[in-house]
Design a binder for these strands. Structure first.
Lengths: 139, 139
DNA sequence: GTATTTGCAAAGTGTTTGCAGAATA
DNA sequence: TATTCTGCAAACACTTTGCAAATAC
């Protein structure tokens, strides 16, 4: 996971896609397609919004991203952690995220899955709060 | 909670709002504003989409609804269960929902809240699967 | 040279809002 | 009568898609 930008996305490897990958890799946190696009163009890269969307879609389909939904319904993306499925605690103010240990929840979900009568149980768990930096002073 | 339709929503009580409340009450499950609107007009009620949205917004602001986000980003609403905060397991095919016992998760969230350094931790937990009716035959 | 990818603009979602007319208190 | 509410249409934000030009192989 050192150089994530060297991953294969579509049938061909292109500069634009490498740019998107690099920009995404530079983000330590969740970003929306729009944010990524804005950052890229702001830093001088020439890329189309559709390309950003399409690249993220492709990565998501390939299961290489964690995605989450913003309160406003915007989709946020982040490289999937190497160890697979994770959940994050996201700051409502600055959007910084931090992975949390979810073993207890995963076990509980398995239990539900086994006893509910439902099949193929999937789960989404989103935690938000105010991080230490945003919490004490302003509020 | 017997007759939920008799709740106060805005400053005045109107027929249209009562209609929305009744339609919502008739749903045992999560519905989107659009679905509710469609059902209402389909059953002969004359109402505007904006009114449905505004009524749901008002109820939501008043904390009288549970809301969740559809996979497509659509917002789904449901009367809040009388006992407060709940989580549901929703069928991906027929949208039927079933409340699940989330004590374990609630405890875990409290633990995170206490040890993460984050303040005001809120959580969203969404479970989806295929219910018994949708599961065995078709897939 | 052929198939994929790109970017623009247009179309498509679900949701919100401005405003004039209708309804409530 | 003075507010509040309603419904339409227009505005919005995010996302997807059609298509011709550019690019990778």
């Amino acid at each position: 996971m050192t150089d994530a930008t060297r991953q294969r996305v579509g049938a061909r490897s292109t500069q634009k896609r490498a740019d998107v990958l690099q920009a995404l890799d530079a983000c330590q946190d969740f970003v929306s397609a729009q944010q990524l696009y804005t950052r890229m163009t702001a830093s001088g890269l020439q890329v189309g919004l559709s390309t950003v969307y399409r690249t993220l879609q492709a990565l998501d389909r390939g299961g290489r991203l964690d995605t989450v939904r913003d309160t406003d319904g915007e989709r946020l993306y982040r490289w999937r952690s190497p160890s697979g499925h994770r959940h994050y605690l996201i700051c409502r103010r600055c959007s910084r995220s931090q992975a949390v240990d979810t073993d207890a929840v995963e076990l509980w979900v398995e239990h539900i899955s086994a006893t509910s009568g439902f099949a193929d149980v999937e789960h989404t768990l989103e935690l938000s709060g105010l991080c230490p930096d945003c919490h004490p002073p302003a509020r």
